[in-house]
Design a protein around this nucleic acid. Sequence first.
RNA 1: CGGGGCGUAGCGCAGCCUGGCUAGCGCGCAGCGUUCGGGACGCUGAGGCCGGAGGUUCAAAUCCUCUCGCCCCGACCA
Length: 577
Amino acid sequence: MKMSNLLLPTLKELPADAELVSHQLMLRAGLMNKLASGIYNYLPLGYRVIKKVEDITREEMDAMGGQELLMPALNPAELWMETGRWEEMGENMFRLKDRHSRDFCLGMTHEEVITDVGRRTIKSYKNLPTILYQIQTKFRDEPRPRAGIIRAREFIMKDMYSFHSDKKSLDETYEKAYQAYLNTFKRCGLKTEVVLADPGPMGGGECHEFTVLCDEGEDTIFTCPGCGYAASADVADYHYDKKASTAFDGKPVDKVSTPAVKTIKDLTDFLKRKPSDFIKTIIYEADGNLLAVLVRGDRDINETKLKRILKTKNLLMATEEQILKLTGGPLGFSGPVGIDGVRIISDFEIQDMKDAVTGANEKDMHLININYGRDFKVSEFYSVRNAVDGDICPQCKATALGMKRGIELGHIFKLGTRYSADMNAIYLDETGAEKPFIMGCYGIGITRIVATLIEQSHDKDGIIWPMSIAPYHVLVMPVISNDEKQMSMASAIYEELKSAGIEVILDDRDARPGVKFKDADLVGFPIRITVGDKAVKELKVELRMRAEGETSYIEREKVLESVKKIIADEIEKIQRV
RNA sequence: CGGGGCGUAGCGCAGCCUGGCUAGCGCGCAGCGUUCGGGACGCUGAGGCCGGAGGUUCAAAUCCUCUCGCCCCGACCA
């Protein structure tokens, strides 16, 4: 490709509404541009990268036995109603009506559709397992699109689904997918962490997230440098060591006036006590029942954990009226002392607190010198708070957990019969009995990979692509375009590489050298061949690697050979694990 | 949905508070010339429903009301 013919609108200035580096660089390097909030055009070079990521993903899914198909993005509502997700997905789903006012949605994921495909086509245990995947555009009406393509409303995803007759088969496929995912990310030049995660609205059992560590990421994960435990904040646990002594020499309970002091922050200032001296009491409503949850004042309740403990999806903070009715006191003055008739779920730590402060269930009053056992009781203790940096690892019980930020690129789930049961997707087993499929599902954010790679691999001048997904491998650049000797030599090299099947661009634009150098670095072609004076005079061209910034001079005749070798070596470096 | 901010040329911005001639600057774009190893320079030129609607006024980019869009923080999130 000649650059003079390429649509590559590079930007010299920073786009005003891009915050993240990857977002800025994708816009500046002319890979994409915005059509509406969270909706982007992928321009030629950006789309080349996307296609390369897709191809790598495709190869890995095929290699583990996946079969590619394509399902419609436009889905009839009935299918989603069968599983209850027409309601459950709420406003995150783009909905529309056809001319007959039938309800449709734009698919945000395809469990319903694939399960329908399965129930119509797979009738016998003899056809199991079956692994199907697609690479397709997904739609989600995000409450707040951000960070360019990382959280977009329309994006490309690879989603794979597996059908099984037993748990063991699912486990095997899950394990294969796990490996295939590691391969895929590695081959795209990414370093990922695998973390335990929460299935959220996907339902089902075990699941893992594949996350790239990145300070700008919106996922929080905890990892143990000792034993390798890794979990997303939703599920991250911590090891609790009960204090040996149960005896306490607590002071007598006292009631203090705290006018209009409702929040932990206010209390800290007002009573001159540390946040960790307070017992925070939050009233929830779960499936119509009220309950109280206790955590230390400096902790946060983890509602994902709480939902698991309660085995419910329907969890709401109680209203002020509910609180008043249950505790007798207004919002902001709740405490565990004297609450009767509801379940009180407490974080483990509460039992170790001495002479704590808590709401008196009475307007403008708090209790001090509260001690568990003496002054209040709880129904059950759990790990119900968010893990924090420095918590002890729940797995090895020895090392402190580290808290990190990351971007989620892939997620694999063991769905079990979550969808097949609701949708009556059954097959006949060896005995002729009807059984619902046991299913798994496996997603990769294709477009998100591109942004994340840039986030992980760039410098002040621009993007640094790994060879495997770079839009082109080589840029051939005559320094002075209207120097005939340079141009003809550069063209010759370009033609030679091109006919050898190498992905090469010739920067034949009549632009000043500085402009071409800047664009080369910004877009980030891995290999740059510069043809300047020295090349013409000594028949030696400059070869520069974008990643290392190393420059060397090679004989004109050896260009093809060298370039071939470098490309092969670079791709080899990030082959499968 | 709560809080904050922004919509003026393809991009980045000034002008608005305190209304007033032809709406400006830098980049980019087109033409000519000089340049040419890290985003050159000179001259010439094209390009604007000042987000939209309504209102106030002799007069609105500027003031008022409504509305649409966009960004950030939070809530939310396969």
